[in-house]
Write a protein that binds this DNA or RNA. Structure first.
Lengths: 108, 108
DNA sequence: CAGGATCCAGCAAGATACTG
DNA sequence: CAGTATCTTGCTGGATCCTG
């Protein structure tokens, strides 16, 4: 039986799903495709997101190794967020979504 | 400026994201790849899902035209759920997720 | 500036009981 | 069988205040 294969596949998809589990994740990732951004900068460009939500999603993406956090010891400190290679390659998933979305929304 | 292009792209991705917005959607869709299933049948194969949650996600997927609902006027009635063409093609997205997931979880 | 801590409202989602 | 209706609750996520 190929239950192992099954569950492995599910696990892989689950991992990908986790990335965008938060409703803000997609927007954050999209913004970071334009280049690294600082916290408040990101906050503004994303739009109506609370401090808590942004930190939450950033911590989440950081743990998933999709986003990298770089602290500059200036005064006051500044922190830059950028996509890791893993994060950059997630674009493929998003592009596939876009392709699907465009195909099926076109013929409403 | 290409803001239109931008927002169109976002909308397309948003559409795709909506499909799996519910945490059960992925499981339901996966099950339906095996073929159409009836309500309680689906309930059992998905696992620990409440009646409400299952009806909710099915209604949602139905409105997104990802799932088709077919009622057989037997006594008692039986209802079969299956994937539409739009739903079947969503597999591409899932496969892309799987590919990404497998690549990056392999090297933990 | 970049968050940590806390408080609270609102909704998601489960359990349960009932129906055509 | 395939739901609907209702009640209840746990957790999400926003607002606010505070700190290194």
């Amino acid at each position: 039986m190929n239950e192992d294969r099954e569950s492995q596949c599910s696990a892989a998809v689950a991992e990908a799903l986790q990335v965008i589990e938060s409703k803000w994740a997609f927007q954050v990732i999209s913004q970071l495709y334009y280049g690294s951004q600082r916290f408040n900068q990101l906050r503004r460009s994303v739009g109506e997101i609370s401090v808590k939500s942004l930190t939450d999603v950033l911590r989440h993406l950081e743990r998933m190794q999709v986003v990298h956090r770089h602290v500059f010891p200036t005064i006051p400190v500044s922190v830059e967020y950028s996509l890791t290679d893993k994060g950059k390659e997630y674009r493929k998933v998003l592009l596939q979504m876009r392709e699907w979305g465009e195909k099926w929304t076109a013929l409403t």
